[in-house]
Each structure stands twice: as structure tokens, then as C-alpha cells.
Amino acid sequence: MAKRKKGRDVHGIVLLNKPLGVSSNHALQTVKRLFNANKAGHTGALDPEASGLLPICLGEATKFSQLLLESDKSYQTRAYLGEVRSTGDSEGEVIRTAEVPALSDSQLADIINRFIGDVEQVPPMFSALKLDGKPLYELARKGMSEAEAKAIAEKKRRVIKIHSLTLDARPSDHELDLTVHCSKGTYIRTLVEDIGDAIGCGAYVAKLHRIQTGPYQGTDMLTLEQLAELAEQGFETLDQVLLPIESAVPGWPKVEICVEEAKRILNGQSLRTSLEDAASVQLWAADSARQQLLGVGQVSDGVLKPVRLLNIPLQLAD
């Protein structure tokens, strides 16, 4: 017996401005409830004490969650100099303090520029990465020493890429406002701590706000309050804020096929084609009046293959 769905078959992407003090999962479940969606997923968690862009995929858009999870991100952060905290942010206990050296903007820029490019990072202990099946933050909260925590975190050392890192402002002698554009898996808390060590006084993240995920910019975000107000006007109004699934892959080549070919693709078959090889393409079916996204595929050696198909009934005429 087929499992009965709970909620609507609604498909698309919501650009949520996640508020401070709310977990990414709580924000996800709230959006899912507002849309009464049968399926939802986010594209990379933000810590409760971080705010900003959290794209939420509804329905068949969840099949693109992993692509967005692996995409580059951008953040605005405030580094507080002269203190090192247990969690790397303002929630942690102060474990070390030091005097902040007097540095000019050019001296600071020289230090910051060292972190552009490929950078090795040891993830913070208060992260969701797992060791032997247990999240690091669970291990960190068991009262282990700083040395023990660092030894465990060291096992998860990784290389990430900082595409750009700019010093935007110096609100006070203890604060630096930075904008970071980075690869997936970058821990801003670790970056700020490493910058603080390079300056010679330590640092922690006082504020963190995500402004970009893959193709999406924070200028188009909506708050939970705004979504709730739209939901009160009905699903027809609320659904208008949904971005189409294909917005997740705007740079991928678009391949259009006829309805008969679309039926073969939806059955998992491949098609002969004269198209040039492409690792990733958007697959579209088209009739004389409209188009419909089928999913994504690839072209190799004259063959068009489906890779990930949407479970949405074909709505075009033969």
C-alpha cells in the first residue's frame, strides 16, 4: 500500500532570511508548515546564532538541495579581537584574552590577504561534523579539555578555498567587519579565529550573516513574519514567492525535446543527439504552447542521458 502524502504537491525554492536564535531545522519546519508542503529541505545549515540566506527547497526542488549545499557561499561577519571563546562565537566562555596590537589598515589587509586561496582548516568542536557517528558538538559538551577537543577536531582537517576576503570597516579597536566569499565547508568561526591568531591576539565571531548561496543573493530574502502574512492571504498568494526549480542551475545549458522524447527520458531511456558533450544540462519538454522542466541530464558521445528527473506528471500535449 502506497504511503499517503501529507500536505500539498508544491514545488519551488524559498529564499528565507533566517533570524537569530532559530535553528535551521526549526526554520525549515516552519516554512514547510506555512506552505503545507509534503516535502521540504534546506541547503546548508546556519548556526542558531547566525542569520541570513537559507534557501529552502519544497517538493521536487529538494532534488537540487545537494547542489546548493555544495555551492559557494558569501558571509558578512564581525570579528571581535582580543578574546578566544570556547565555541568560537559570542555564546562561548572566554578562555583566553590578549591585548590587541595597534595595526594600520594596510597592515591588517596584509594579514587578511594571507587567507585568500586554498586554506587548511580544523573545524570547530562546536560543529555538526561527525566523528565515529557522533557530532563534534556532543563530544565538546562532555567537558573534555581544550587539548582533547583540538586533537579530535584535528582528525577532520580539510582544505577549503577563500575566493575573496575584504575588510569593510573597523567599528572599534576590537572589531573588524569582513565579507567572505568561500567554498562549501568553510567554517567562518575557524577563519576568524585563525585571523585573530595571525594578528596575535585571538578573535571570535561576534556576528554572522549569510548573503549568498550559489546563484541566490540575500537581497531577495523573505522573513518568517512576511511568509506568515502571505500565508494568511491563501496559498495562491504565498506560492507567488516561490522561485522555479531551474533557478538553482541558471548557468546550465538548456536542452529542449519533444513530448515523445520526453516520455522516453521519463522512463529512464537515453536519446541519440547531435549536441556537444556537456557534464550537466537542464532537460525540458516542449509542445507548441509551453515548456516543462523534466530534470537534469548529461550529454556524452552523442547520447543524452537523464541524471536526475522530477516526479511531476507530464502536462504537455502530444
Rank of each mutant, 00 (worst) to 15 (best):
P124E: 08
V22T: 15
S104G: 04
S71F: 12
L28Q: 06
L139S: 00
L81A: 07
V122Q: 13
D72I: 04
R85L: 05
A109G: 09
Y75L: 04
G82R: 08
K134W: 00
E120S: 09
M125C: 02
R78W: 02
R85M: 08
T97S: 14
L54V: 00
A79C: 14
V84C: 05
G133A: 04
R114P: 00
P123K: 09
T97Q: 14
G88H: 02
T62C: 04
I111L: 12
I56L: 05
Y75V: 01
A140K: 11
G44Y: 13
S71Q: 10
Y137F: 13
M125Q: 10
T87G: 13
P19V: 05
A109T: 15
K73F: 01
K63E: 02
V122Y: 08
E83R: 09
G59Q: 06
K39R: 12
G133Y: 03
L68H: 07
Q107M: 09
P101C: 06
T87F: 02
T62M: 08
L28M: 05
A27H: 11
Q107T: 11
R33Q: 12
P55F: 03
D47I: 08
S104R: 10
L68I: 04
S51T: 09
E60K: 10
M125A: 11
E60S: 03
A140T: 00
G52V: 00
K130Q: 10
D89M: 08
R96S: 11
A79K: 14
N25T: 11
E70R: 15
P19N: 11
S106D: 15
L68M: 07
G44M: 13
E138M: 06
D89E: 06
G133H: 07
E60F: 08
T77D: 09
V84G: 08
L108Y: 11
R114C: 01
S65D: 04
D47R: 14
G59R: 04
V100E: 01
A40R: 05
T87A: 13
P19Y: 08
L103W: 09
S74K: 05
F64Q: 09
D72G: 12
F64P: 11
R33Y: 14
Q121G: 10
Q76W: 06
E83D: 11
L139H: 00
H42A: 03
T62Q: 08
D47T: 10
L136P: 02
A50H: 03
V94W: 02
G133K: 08
D89V: 01
I95Q: 05
G133C: 06
N38F: 09
P124I: 04
E83W: 04
I116H: 12
E138Y: 01
L81F: 07
P123F: 13
V122K: 02
T62G: 06
G44R: 10
I116Y: 14
G117L: 04
S71E: 15
S106A: 13
